[in-house]
Amino acid sequence: MRLHVDQRHERVLELVRERGSLRVAELAAELGVSAVTLRRDVETLAAQGRVHRLHGAVVWPGDTAATPERRQESAEGAVIGMIVPTTNYIFADIVRGAREAVGAQGGRLVLGVSGYVDTEDSVQAEHLVAGGAQGLLVAPSWFGGVPEDGQEKWLVECEVPTVLVERSALPGNPAADLDRVRTDRAHGAALAVGHLAALGHRRITAVLQEGPHAVQISAGFQAAVRSRGIDVDEGAPSVREHGDYDASVDYLVEAVVVRGVTGALVHSDEDAIVLVPRLQSRGVRVPDDLALIAYDDEVAGLADVPLTAVAPPKHAVGELAAKLLLRRLSERAAGERPSPRQHLDLLPELRIRSSCGGGASAGSAS
């Protein structure tokens, strides 16, 4: 039999009074209601001063020292939830870095995967928090890497501390107030341009995936070519995860043969590996005719022609994001004034391999 809201409130008060503190998830299960409904009840009771809310728990006034979170912090360490769009690509190393950082402090990392479905982010977050996660590391499924049309609403209203991972928000967006740790992908693109310029290439192009990192990579590429006075061949089609590679091959062949392009940045390295043999079958050789730099360095070194690649500091992104979140939890547990929010941008490195050759002769035949 479903309880009326007033009856439910009284039952919540009765249970919390008896036990001192309870997790929201435990209360919801005991009363047979959803975690969302139970949280609304707790918010109402907390506003009346009849209970306290603390880190996903409901606490009887005056008994905050006995919360499940405090006991867990002193015994096993924090439970950290992490939401990523996939466990493949760059996120495998990011998750590994976070897990190791949390484990080093006696905590446990619990993973949620959104599958690049933006509505799934909040579902995963609710599940993790209801299950006891005291803080969240989140790489939301924002297609352009920043929130649009209120996509950040659930995130800024989250009841536990949250750190953005490999995502950001534009100034003025509420999510810009969150802590974040990400790769400076614009810097990585500039590294690639600098390397091509040092080899003597004067007309280059960029063939990029659409997605969360495209804007940063493109911005870094464009800024670097302007600062170095390098000509850019415009109009490259987007390379999609399962995209039309024929369009990219057609574009690059014409760019090299007709317009004198001698260097290219390709995101990602998986796409670059697909493109190289197709280019070769059309008479464009890497690196003899086209110096090629890949972006991400997941498998670039395994290509038939090992690819020079921009390598994001993936493990360090996960590690530093987790450490930042753990510090937020420590500040909260100690009742300390929170230190200033942080936006950490980590610089990638360029790993030199065979795909750029040794000089500026990439445009000549032999």
Rank of each mutant, 00 (worst) to 15 (best):
V5N: 08
V16D: 00
R17D: 13
R17L: 07
R19E: 15
L22N: 06
R23F: 06
A25H: 08
V36L: 12
L38A: 10
D41Q: 12
T44F: 13
A46N: 13
V51D: 05
P61L: 07
T64R: 10
Q72D: 05
S74A: 14
A75I: 11
T86Y: 04
T86V: 10
A92M: 13
I94M: 04
I94E: 09
G97M: 04
Q105P: 08
Q105F: 03
G107H: 11
G107N: 10
Y116K: 03
S122R: 15
A125D: 00
E126W: 10
H127G: 12
A130H: 03
Q134Y: 06
G135C: 12
L136C: 11
P140F: 01
P140E: 00
F143L: 09
E148A: 14
D149I: 05
Q151P: 09
K153F: 01
L155A: 11
V156W: 04
C158Y: 02
V160T: 13
E166V: 03
E166S: 14
R167S: 06
N173T: 10
P174S: 08
D179K: 01
D179L: 01
D179R: 05
A186M: 08
A189G: 04
A192T: 04
A192P: 11
V193T: 03
L196Q: 05
A198V: 00
I204R: 01
A206P: 08
L208A: 02
I217D: 04
S218D: 15
S218P: 00
Q222T: 12
S227Q: 15
D231E: 13
V232M: 02
E234C: 02
R240Y: 06
Y245F: 13
Y245V: 05
V249W: 00
V249T: 06
V256L: 00
V258D: 15
R259E: 04
V261P: 02
V261R: 00
G263I: 02
G263V: 02
V266D: 02
H267I: 01
E270W: 05
A272W: 03
I273D: 01
V274R: 15
L279V: 07
S281G: 15
V284D: 03
P287F: 01
D289Y: 00
L292W: 04
E298S: 14
A300M: 11
A303T: 00
P306A: 07
L307P: 11
L307W: 02
P312H: 04
G318P: 06
A321R: 00
P340F: 10
D345S: 13
D345K: 12
L347N: 12
P348S: 10
P348H: 03
L350T: 05
R353I: 02
S354T: 07
A360K: 07
A360G: 14
S361W: 09
S361D: 15
